[in-house]
Design a protein around this nucleic acid. Structure first.
Lengths: 211, 211
DNA sequence: CCTACCGATCGGTAGG
DNA sequence: CCTACCGATCGGTAGG
């Protein structure tokens, strides 16, 4: 949990390789300093290693950045996606995905908020391997929400004429906006508004036949 | 319009001071490279000046960055806010504000999309003068939308029990999400979804008494 | 995984 | 607004 373990060897005993420890630090740092602002020197300092020590693990800065994205993805899957998928399939799962996303922002899993929102803005307008990788992750997230929404509709929990792509666009929009507001203003108001919006959206799209 | 005017003296004739020309370039560059990635050397190259020539205009990088934000704000006011305020007060104006925002994204007024969305992600998690300035601009934009929404409600165009803060949060969320999608994927689909969402939101909040 | 080093670029200054 | 320069840091390499 701490930034710099008192005794690095204890990490080894846990079986957590040094590489993962470095990448965890890198992923959290990148949400504050950016993927580019994450310099090898700074990361070396943050992990208590020398710069060339890092180059033993990663051949180049871009390799480090790509590995960092992959680590962030794994963290996101573990703390957002998997808990969401543990919810009952359908509307509940869709709501859980939004809720878990908001929770991971509020719990500050990454100090700079959602890793992918943060980094997407950085590489959005710049072509290259980082851009392509981040764009793909974003599409995967949307595709996941859509698959859940489609399932909810197929199960008759959402109206048959629900435009699930539109619904998912709007759900993602409000949770991401909440992330931005929380990071920029340190204010959870947006998180509450997002929860409110998600709840209403799902209620509005739900099949009205209750009896 | 062009990145590097053939004859810089023509700009002078127009009465556009060199400083403004530099800052216009800086504002557009910052949406791609970031406010930090915008180095003095790169900006010097982009404007055809020497580094120390820039220091004659701006005492430090932070001064340049703050001046760049101010220029971006003026551009935003000119291309988004003022056209929106030209629309009839009330719901139409609220719709116009959203529409003008989406238009300025689609027209690529800034090559990296909305300046403030881009920069907010960069400085969001970092304390300092840049953060505070960007946070203020974001609050101003939300306050503007809210003032318009309140007016629309006071005029009876929106239901009296409309939660305008919630409405504005959701409107802003979808237009910003459209910006992100357009920049990241070069795909206008999100812009259409945002227009659709804005239209439906305003329709839902409208007073149902039509006859 | 380290020390020691490379050329390039960073923000910034002196002096004009 | 320029040339010429400063120390610091960048990404990366040699050699171990």
């Amino acid at each position: 949990m701490s930034d710099a373990p008192a005794d690095p060897r204890r990490e080894r005993v846990d079986g957590a390789p040094r590489r993962e420890q470095i990448l965890n630090t890198a992923a959290r740092l990148a949400t504050v300093e950016g993927l580019d602002g994450l310099s090898i020197g700074r990361l070396a300092q943050a992990t208590g290693m020398s710069k060339s020590g890092l180059y033993a693990h990663f051949g180049s800065k871009q390799e480090l950045q790509l590995a960092t994205i992959d680590t962030a993805r794994q963290i996101f899957i573990k703390v957002v996606v998997q808990p969401a998928l543990a919810a009952p399939t359908g509307v509940e799962q869709l709501q859980a995905a939004c809720e878990q996303f908001l929770d991971h922002v509020e719990r500050e899993v990454f100090p700079g908020g959602c890793f992918f929102s943060s980094v997407a803005a950085e590489v959005g307008g710049r072509p290259g391997a980082l851009h392509d990788r981040i764009a793909r992750e974003q599409l995967d997230w949307i595709a996941l929400l859509q698959a859940i929404a489609d399932e909810a509709r197929d199960r008759g929990q959402l109206a048959a004429d629900t435009d699930t792509a539109q619904l998912v666009f709007e759900l993602n929009a409000v949770v991401v906006a909440a992330n931005t507001g929380f990071v920029l203003h340190g204010d959870p108001t947006g998180l509450e508004r997002a929860r409110h919006a998600v709840h209403r959206q799902l209620k509005d799209a739900a099949t009205t036949a209750d009896p």
